[in-house]
Simulated assay, not measured.
Amino acid sequence: MIKTAAPRTLGVAPSEARLRFDAELQKAGGGPRRRLLFVDDEPAFELSFPCGTCPLLFRRLESGREKLSLESMQERLTGALDDPDDAGVIDAFGALLPEGEYLPLLLSVEPKLITPGREGDYFSEEQVASWGIDQFWGLPQYPHTPYYRTFETAVDSDAHLYEFVVPMVPPAWNDRQRVEEYLMLTAEGAVPTAVAVSTLDVCQPALDLQDDLSVHWGLTHFLLDGHHKLEAAAAAGRTVRLLSLLALGESLSGAAHQARLPALRAQPRSTRATGSSNGAGAA
């Protein structure tokens, strides 16, 4: 955590926003409606199901092919952004978002690129320890995209915060020349700034499902700008700034959870040793 600002109303009417959170249209005889992140009216990501006991999820869909970058902001964001209440930057990106309450957070992150199913994959490791594998597929949840892990810390004895940065398109689609440019900038000491819209989903496994019943707080940042910056930082083992616009009304968490987030994000990083938990945790 570098700084935080007070929640503020941002965005435009949902019909005018390039990005919006919504549920899919109900089909006759279909199952429960999925919670989705839409980009240009196309479903881009399936998100955690709001049942209270379902596992954390961000799953890229086939129609998720668009970034939401504003080219006019590139030069400004490459330099040092020191104020999470910078009206010019926030309002510019707010024009992409649906109207709502957002909490600006300016974070320092050192991203680690994760390939699903390989070492460090949250869905194959920590989530399996709490929820087990998917009962239908017999496999862990699969996000259908590489993603970045950046931070985690204890909430309390039975709850843990996990942070992710999710690119709108796979890093393999990034322009190689621009990644190299950011590698050179970071080698010279520059700390680029990326921008994301974020959710805080608090998910708790059902009782007696697994030995580890810890509550998972998932802070998930969907990149609006900074795809090349994050890849370069991950490759070089360096930090970037991340201006997070936390969508308070679109998160599966309450005001009490959200009020604790700045202090939790300012804690030292700590990993969780998965194992038996004596209680269901504090949701």
Rank of each mutant, 00 (worst) to 15 (best):
P84T: 00
P84C: 01
D85F: 06
A87Y: 11
G88V: 09
V89G: 07
V89S: 06
I90R: 05
D91F: 14
D91P: 11
D91K: 12
D91Q: 13
A92E: 15
A92L: 09
F93L: 03
F93R: 04
F93G: 01
F93Y: 09
A95R: 14
A95S: 15
A95H: 13
A95M: 12
A95N: 08
L97P: 06
L97Y: 06
P98K: 05
G100L: 01
G100T: 03
G100I: 05
G100K: 06
E101H: 05
E101T: 07
L103T: 00
L103Y: 06
P104D: 01
P104H: 00
L105G: 04
L106C: 05
S108D: 15
S108R: 15
S108G: 11
V109M: 14
V109A: 10
V109N: 03
E110R: 13
E110V: 12
E110H: 14
P111E: 07
K112W: 11
K112S: 14
L113D: 03
I114Y: 05
T115Y: 12
T115A: 11
T115C: 08
P116M: 10
P116A: 11
G117F: 09
R118H: 14
R118G: 10
E119D: 15
E119K: 03
G120C: 03
G120Q: 02
Y122V: 05
Y122T: 03
F123I: 02
S124F: 00
E126N: 05
E126R: 01
Q127Y: 02
Q127F: 08
A129W: 07
A129D: 01
S130Q: 09
S130T: 08
S130K: 07
S130Y: 04
W131P: 06
W131A: 10
W131D: 03
W131K: 00
W131S: 02
I133L: 11
Q135P: 15
Q135W: 10
Q135C: 12
W137K: 14
G138A: 14
G138E: 12
G138V: 13
L139C: 15
P140E: 00
P140L: 04
Y142T: 08
Y142A: 12
Y142P: 13
P143G: 08
H144L: 12
T145I: 15
T145Q: 10
T145D: 12
Y148N: 00
Y148G: 04
R149Y: 04
E152H: 01
E152M: 00
A154G: 03
A154R: 10
V155A: 07
D156A: 06
S157G: 14
L161Y: 01
L161S: 08
L161F: 05
Y162K: 06
F164P: 02
F164L: 04
V165R: 05
V165N: 04
V166A: 02
P167H: 13
P167L: 00
M168S: 12
M168L: 06
V169Q: 09
P170K: 04
W173S: 13
N174D: 14
N174E: 08
N174R: 12
N174Q: 12
D175I: 14
R176W: 04
R176D: 03
Q177R: 09
Q177V: 12
R178C: 02
V179Y: 00
V179I: 11
E180A: 13
E180W: 11
